[in-house]
Design a protein around this nucleic acid. Structure first.
Lengths: 230, 230
DNA sequence: GGCCTCAATATACTATAGGATATTGGCATT
DNA sequence: AATGCCAATATCCTATAGTATATTGAGGCC
């Protein structure tokens, strides 16, 4: 009975969870402006729920640094990444992600490589969907960012160190970068760099994998940094 | 007016915050057993508050991975670090903390060095307070662990990368290690290793600082690992 | 005119109550 | 005796209401 069907506890939805996701969406897509105050009662009315689950969701979002709580004054939407925070984020990513890539490479098997290739293909598809005549839409960037997040998460998971994955995940890199809403990240460069990483992993060369990841992070930083130029 | 008194928003206490801290204490000191279920109503009665702020506190504690939520079933206390999680924690610390030490060293000034020395002195005091005739109490280790946390946090802050500090802080290393509650005679060695780190920082030798921190983490891991032997 | 005071309103915070789901124990059936 | 069904209880989850604090605006004072 070694290979029985994996039965997981089915994911029940509690209002608090739904509200959490809903507000996260609102914040990410800037339906609520950064820095704006969040009126709990108003938000509850909008979502057609009572303030109680809203408060619970906000308490969790505060841990994600997506909202900021000032006691007895209420919550406000966290400001967008400024230049300093941007550099800090990439410094941390540049430290952790290459390490994760190295570990993942050391433990890599055929399944991982195919899985990563699938992720790359999916990302390529989001690019192919774009045509020069159609202006890039917000939705496109969203898709792309989502695929990018999946790729990096897959490598973090493959590192075998769950805490490492957790740590990276808690940075909420893609969420914060997505809020910058700077679409130059979209492009073949990203795909090519991802492929370089997977190539190194497939070749079982941990150092090369780490180097490829470091290079990718660095270049990604360079691309996104333009968001702060004027 | 450059040097006016730093006026910060004064820290208001909200019930929710108090409950958060109270439950954290309970978990850390094992007044609630790991794995045990947490009855919200009961806990609210014990703390003489209503369930509402308790729920809010638990929601935040879940983000800290100190409690685990199962929808419609309730919360339970997170299990103690097992051997695998322990190794993972130290792997992550071993990656991040030396980097923080290097950065801190690069930006170090006289103030930082004196501040770190003060932390070391404070830690030394917690050791001196111990006398062989008195059995080591639980309280003593608590003090010691807290001082250790302060030292590491000071270096993380000094790195200049706030996100790095946040990332380390969110690991809740000392909290989880404290829960293992296994530490005998680790005082003097820890102090010595901390001093080695500060020495390197004072000498403005970033690589040496990173190496000293790496060594410290490695040795600390070796000391604490005994908790899993039997 | 600027600043302080104070009342009115808005909003956050907590408590309480009611509905929904899970858990437990007993009873019946095989 | 073991298993399945069902009712009773416990517990979580959500909504509502009341209290406390902050914010806003107008009026008075210097």
């Amino acid at each position: 009975m070694k290979e029985r069907t994996r039965t997981r506890p089915l994911p029940r939805q509690i209002l608090s969870d739904s509200v959490y996701e809903a507000v996260k969406e609102l914040v990410m897509d800037q339906h609520i402006e950064p820095g704006a105050r969040v009126n709990i009662d108003q938000l509850a009315r909008d979502l057609r729920v009572s303030p109680t689950p809203v408060r619970e969701a906000l308490a969790r979002l505060e841990m994600d640094a997506l909202v900021i709580k000032e006691p007895l004054r209420g919550y406000s939407i966290a400001p967008i990444l400024d230049a300093a925070a941007f550099e800090q984020l990439y410094e941390v990513r540049g430290l952790i992600e290459p390490f994760a890539a190295r570990r993942a490479c050391e433990r890599a098997n055929r399944q991982l490589v195919t899985a990563l290739h699938r992720e790359i293909d999916a990302m390529q598809k989001t690019i192919d969907g774009l045509r020069p005549e159609k202006p890039r839409r917000y939705r496109d960037y969203r898709e792309f960012a989502w695929e990018d997040a999946r790729f990096h998460e897959a490598i973090a998971v493959a590192s075998g160190n769950e805490l490492l994955g957790e740590t990276l995940s808690r940075l909420r890199s893609h969420l914060h970068l997505y809020r910058l809403y700077y679409a130059t990240g979209i492009g073949p460069e990203t795909v090519a760099e991802h492929e370089a990483i997977v190539t190194a992993i497939a070749a079982h060369q941990p150092e090369a994998a780490a180097a490829a990841m470091a290079e990718h992070i660095k270049r990604s930083q360079g691309r996104q940094r333009h968001a702060f130029e004027r």
